[in-house]
């Protein structure tokens, strides 16, 4: 395997085949037991992306933390940067579900949004 080749679990069913991804001009997937694995492996090989669920500090609310998530998935390699940007952040209640908390987080062109309403409680 070259440096770029990776191993990954297929997430398409509970079996969880261990896929070997040989990444070249073409992508070769090995280790799958059905064609779902080939499809998943090819998608996963080029641009692995993940959703980021986390919390940010919030003032004057029921809880000290507001749950937030990335509106779409972000590149896996960018997750640390996303977390770094959110770490120092502090918002203030009230907040509405779906409200944008950070625009274009870590230059991914993805927004971070609130997962729930948080009313003002002092």
């Amino acid at each position: 395997m070259s440096d770029e080749d990776r191993e990954v679990l297929c997430v398409r069913c509970p079996k969880g085949c261990r896929l070997k991804l040989f990444i070249d001009e073409n992508i070769v997937v090995k280790g799958q037991e059905c064609k779902l694995g080939v499809d998943y492996g090819k998608k996963e090989a080029r641009h692995p992306e993940r959703e980021v669920p986390t919390t940010v500090k919030i003032k004057n609310a029921r809880w000290p933390r507001l749950p937030v998530r990335s509106k779409k998935s972000v590149p896996l390699a960018k997750i640390d940067e996303v977390m770094e940007e959110l770490r120092g952040l502090k918002v203030e209640a009230p907040v509405k579900k779906g409200e944008v908390i950070v625009q274009n987080v870590a230059d991914t062109s993805v927004d971070i949004i609130a997962e729930r309403d948080m009313e003002r409680e002092v």
């Binding site: 959703e51 669920p53 919390t55 749950p67 579900k97 997962e115 729930r116």
Partner: peptide, 18 residues
């Protein structure tokens, strides 16, 4: 707060609070 709720019922992946 992670996603994955609602995929069977609403055909979309929601967080717990959502």
């Amino acid at each position: 707060i992670h996603e994955g709720f609602g995929t069977l019922l609403f055909d979309k992946s929601l967080s717990g609070p959502e």
